[in-house]
């Protein structure tokens, strides 16, 4: 498989245009998330889409857009904090420090709620546009500059039964 390199800048530009943006109302004064909130979001992102081969850096990068929106959007920031508090309640302790199985169970309890969906949609929209993730899962990205796949394996399947 040929891995098509993509610069971080082009990734950010591309992901920023994602059609899957989560829309939450709000505007105005400076607010944002504390360091503990950011750590909790990072842990959430990892548990929602647990690709062991990916470094935390990838998830941190993926969360950047959500977190920077929260900086300017108090309603979003509040929704994210509320989600983390829900997790704390579901875990019966500081969710970030709970054992992994308990963290997953707590996530399951808030699944489908507004905060859960906001984080999941935001992570999913960005993560699967990330070149490192593409490399991991075998997606090759833009192909036109390589002449497409006409001479690069568009029909090279070799495991189908003969019948």
């Amino acid at each position: 498989m040929k891995y098509v390199p993509m610069t971080r800048r082009s990734f950010v530009a591309s992901a920023a245009g994602a059609a899957f943006m989560v829309v939450l109302p709000g505007c105005g004064s400076e607010s944002g998330l504390g360091e503990n909130d950011r750590r909790a979001l990072l842990r959430m992102a990892r548990l929602l889409y647990p690709h062991d081969a990916l470094a935390d850096d990838v998830y941190t990068e993926v969360l950047q857009s959500l977190q920077s929106r929260a900086t300017h959007d108090p309603v979003l920031a509040e929704a994210l904090r509320a989600g983390i508090e829900e997790l704390d309640r579901a875990a019966g302790r500081d969710w970030r420090t709970a054992p992994t199985e308990d963290q997953i169970e707590a996530l399951g309890r808030i699944e489908g709620g507004a905060s859960f969906n906001t984080v999941q949609d935001a992570v999913r929209a960005q993560l699967y546009e990330h070149p490192e993730v593409w490399s991991l899962i075998g997606y090759e990205g833009s192909s036109v500059e390589y002449g497409g796949y006409l001479l690069r394996g568009f029909d090279d399947i070799d495991w189908l039964p003969e019948d």
């Binding site: 899957f20 647990p50 690709h51 546009e129 899962i137 075998g138």
Partner: peptide, 24 residues
Amino acid sequence: GTPQAHSQLAGWGADAQSWMENFS
């Protein structure tokens, strides 16, 4: 389909991991 389209059916957790890592 693209990874983005594939991810719409991923779910989350271990379910999402196996679904996405089998994209090819």
